[in-house]
Nucleic acid binder design. Structure first.
Lengths: 209, 209
DNA sequence: GGATAACGGTATCAAAAGATACCATTGCCG
DNA sequence: CGGCAATGGTATCTTTTGATACCGTTATCC
């Protein structure tokens, strides 16, 4: 999985040969186990991680609550890191590996260098900023204006689309963490949905009808 | 205010002579009156507005509620527009002139062109993305985790710092719009703060003690 | 097989926020 | 000067969400 060809099979947007060579020369492939923390809140960011395989969950935490910001999937990078590394800043949020995850670790000094030298890299940076911003804005909107029941439905439908399955493997507690609320609230709402015939509850599993 | 020298007095970060010339050749200065809408939600974005004088308020609205995203002050630009114009997208939020506002309107086709040609322009674009993202994240955090009373205090202190005065000119309704809640809720909280001796209420004016 | 942890159903109570309504005051405009 | 809009004080009621507590079930691990 970490051979040259495999790396650029995932990072197929990197077209320049010279950039590929620089990547092989200066970057490292790191592996994180499921549940391992990749970036801590307040930590200084020294490398930009691009996901090669697996998934990273980026979230904000406060006391015993947490709320999902987004997932980083293969060929994507973490907005926090990108933002933080431009000015050698601290990360405002946490990142944890959802499953075993391999990342390409790019030392921050190359980010801006490559932006000037390589078109595809500049596009990648801009696209990341853009997409993550839009995503955050969408989440913001739903947190600011919507009730939790609607947010639960939206979250489940989003998962359904993304994973192309009606059965979402997820405990009530996990769902509470995703949306920034508590388990009891989620159980209550899901039960109501089940009574309305919208879904069926199984152990650590939600079946959309 | 719209003479060449005045423009680049505000946009002093633009160092390249060639870029200054391109700006003068291809861009227009537009004036908006107080309260005038600059960008509507869902509208396609064709120019990137950089504020020369005055202030723009960018917010999201839903039914009779609205919530502040950020202000655009002189020498800054609107994140929405920047994001939207990269892919010829619709604006996800609205922008209104707070006071008489002059902007430099840059046709979107130059944004990426200049990014490659001019260092200072690329920095401007990146810095805008970065700062707006961090700002949004901060607002998101407070909406997700904090109660309204705390958000009211934070908003007022922020204004106090920014404007360097203890007297904030603001009606309860306006404050409700900034924070995405209703007038009655704000009046209730402010009254409580006044009873606690934290501030003093005047008509359309809040005095921090 | 028994301890233990994860999962989740549910009841009760409290707090936060929103909805509505009504009225008094102030400022402005014709 | 009279009307009208903006401002804001306040009371009442409801809804939403959160906090706590308790218990039964299921899975997992020695």
């Amino acid at each position: 999985m970490t051979s040259e060809t495999e790396i650029f099979k995932v990072l197929d947007f990197i077209s320049e040969k010279a950039l590929r060579e620089e990547i092989l020369e200066y970057c490292q492939v790191l592996t994180f186990q499921k549940g391992e923390t990749i970036v801590r809140e307040g930590e200084y960011v020294k490398v930009l991680p691009i996901v090669l395989s697996g998934h990273i969950r980026v979230f904000q935490a406060k006391e015993d609550r947490e709320i999902l910001l987004y997932y980083v999937d293969p060929s994507q990078t973490c907005m926090m890191s990108l933002s933080a590394c431009f000015y050698n800043n601290q990360s405002p949020s946490q990142a944890v590996a959802v499953s075993e995850t391999k990342i390409l670790a790019i030392p921050t000094r190359y980010i801006t260098q490559w932006q000037k030298k390589y078109n595809s890299w500049n596009n990648f940076v801009i696209k990341t900023f853009r997409n993550r911003y839009d995503e955050l804005l969408e989440t913001f909107e739903s947190v600011a204006f919507d009730h939790i029941d609607k947010r639960v439905m939206e979250y489940l439908n989003h998962r359904k689309e993304k994973e192309d399955t009606s059965i979402i493997k997820l405990s009530h507690q996990q769902l509470a963490y995703e949306l920034g609320t508590t388990r009891v609230v989620i159980s209550r709402i899901l039960k109501q949905f089940e009574m309305d015939g919208i879904l069926k509850l199984h152990r650590a599993e939600i079946e959309l009808l």
